[in-house]
Design a protein around this nucleic acid. Sequence first.
DNA 1: GTTAGCACTCAATGATGTTGAGTGCTAATT
DNA 2: AATTAGCACTCAACATCATTGAGTGCTAAC
Lengths: 348, 348
Amino acid sequence: MALNDRKIQILQAIINDYIATAEPVGSRTIAKKYNLGISSATIRNEMSDLEEMGFIIQPHASAGRIPSDLGYRLYVDRLMQKKELTPQEQQLLKSVATTNISQIDYLMEETAKVISILTNYTVLISEPVFTGAKLKQIRLLPLDSESIILMVATDGNYIKNHILKVSVVPEEKKLFEMGSCINNILKGCTVEDIDECIIALLKRELQEYSYILPMLLSAIQKTARGAESIQVHLSGTKNILAFPEFSDIQRAKSLFQTLEQKDVLITLLQEQKNDDVQIMIGSENSLQSIKDCSVITTTYKMGNGTRGTIGILGPTRMDYSQVVSVLNGMVKNIESVLQALVENKNDT
Amino acid sequence: MALNDRKIQILQAIINDYIATAEPVGSRTIAKKYNLGISSATIRNEMSDLEEMGFIIQPHASAGRIPSDLGYRLYVDRLMQKKELTPQEQQLLKSVATTNISQIDYLMEETAKVISILTNYTVLISEPVFTGAKLKQIRLLPLDSESIILMVATDGNYIKNHILKVSVVPEEKKLFEMGSCINNILKGCTVEDIDECIIALLKRELQEYSYILPMLLSAIQKTARGAESIQVHLSGTKNILAFPEFSDIQRAKSLFQTLEQKDVLITLLQEQKNDDVQIMIGSENSLQSIKDCSVITTTYKMGNGTRGTIGILGPTRMDYSQVVSVLNGMVKNIESVLQALVENKNDT
DNA sequence: GTTAGCACTCAATGATGTTGAGTGCTAATT
DNA sequence: AATTAGCACTCAACATCATTGAGTGCTAAC
């Protein structure tokens, strides 16, 4: 059986209508709404064929048809038209860039929020990850009469401060020198590089202050781990409740449970393989618990080669073209923000 | 009509039963389950009185009774018994202290999570707030060939780093001196204190590097604002779905919408006036949207006098005594953690 | 190949009856 | 005077049944 032009038109009509209404679409509806110049009976015949071919499904005998996962697949691969964002949408997109973004995690939070507002779906974003983070700068600074600050910066300008309580705070100049000295020893190392030998060296250099060494090392380790761990931001989970496919509270609850597990989210985002927009429809997802959802992912890149992933999760009956447009727009946008963040006057 | 002992016993039975089952409680149920030594008919008469007095309500003619807000009020004020936490619960409480808590916001996140697990309600926590934050330490550090780090610490050891891109990075010693100098000028100031005069002074001291001044000031301002802004952590919102009172998806959705507005949460937590545990039942809440929820709040104090608030939100049919116990236990716990955080080797 | 027409299916809706938990009242009992 | 047994009454919840209408598949005519 050939998938002729008319069948495609009908399939497209079914999908469009179903995305808009969430109601099974019948032959009469199509005949009336989309004037394809054929009668409902003919459409009926074609629909029967489309069902046989697996593109549409009849939820029960006397109902209209709804697209199957395969139908959506055909749609996103061949039928979907590029949607232009409205000026309002574009403006909202850009608002992320103009708010005072000072920290990457805040930027991600904001980005997730804006996308979820624009699409009404659930948004997952992973922060850019630095693997094998190298120590870039380590410094000691005075804080007050009983504590000093240890600042650790790693690759990708991931910076953390740690407060170390000490019985005696060295004099400012001395502290500066100690910091410099530690910095010279550890600069360029990864955490794994810090071996007995280096520790001994540090101990010798610190002289009478060597007792702070354990805290110092533990703080450095923490920072490195932080730089290497994947942070996932989630927004718009509540949107799920608005979709009729989740009006059953049980379903909503079980999806919420899935979304609460950070490792699951990470897995989900890591399914994203190439750099393009990737669409996983319903049963194509490897996770059992989202077998009736679709996930659209894409990556954004920072100047230094690190990448993060943005994912959007919604019912399979999703406005794919809208989501793809928003994603493309947003990636462009945050890439330029990140660029500015690295190139300009900004802070972490 | 007097609220005699027997009426109180019956009211208590009704409340206990309703908290446990969420079903209206009938006279026969009470007669059977709680052997008060009187017949259901007598209980019926007493219940009729209790209803007249406003402590219980009949949702419809042929149903049992449920406690009114007034009934709950009487309960929490006079009837509620202190609950001891089980060893398991205590252990979970303490687990917050033992996980490697390095940042206040992470501690709060963790605390909120544990409380929501223990109570199954929704938890709001506000971080301790520092008003009129004074600058405590300001330092400049080298980062790489094109950027320097500005570190700003305020009262309450709130520390932020900012990356400043510069065309020429001053030599390490020079940078250190510039930092020291800025620090000497600004130390102890609030942001408001920085006037024309001080700016001029800074400009003079920075000499050829004075062009970084605008970025510098803006970064300092940001930090101070951050120290003074209220962070609210939210956990266990999804728990709401488990309660029969929210099985109507519309209600759940509208509550979620309320919880999404940070300013609403802040208002909610600021209702907490004294330092004791405070219970607001149903219509006692000033917010219209949570008129059928109860909110229990309490404060925790840090050594330096700053305080934060913990709030728990659930249906009016809440296990008040359990929540109060958990709250009391947790406050004791995080106060000691915060103490340790300030006194010991830790980081921000 | 297309379409009109018709029989058939089935979810959704509404009407109707039944059940059971619960009440209030009254009269008898303590 | 307080308590209780008994009974009539109410009403949500549930089940049953008929009706409706959207939708299909098939057949015969165009």
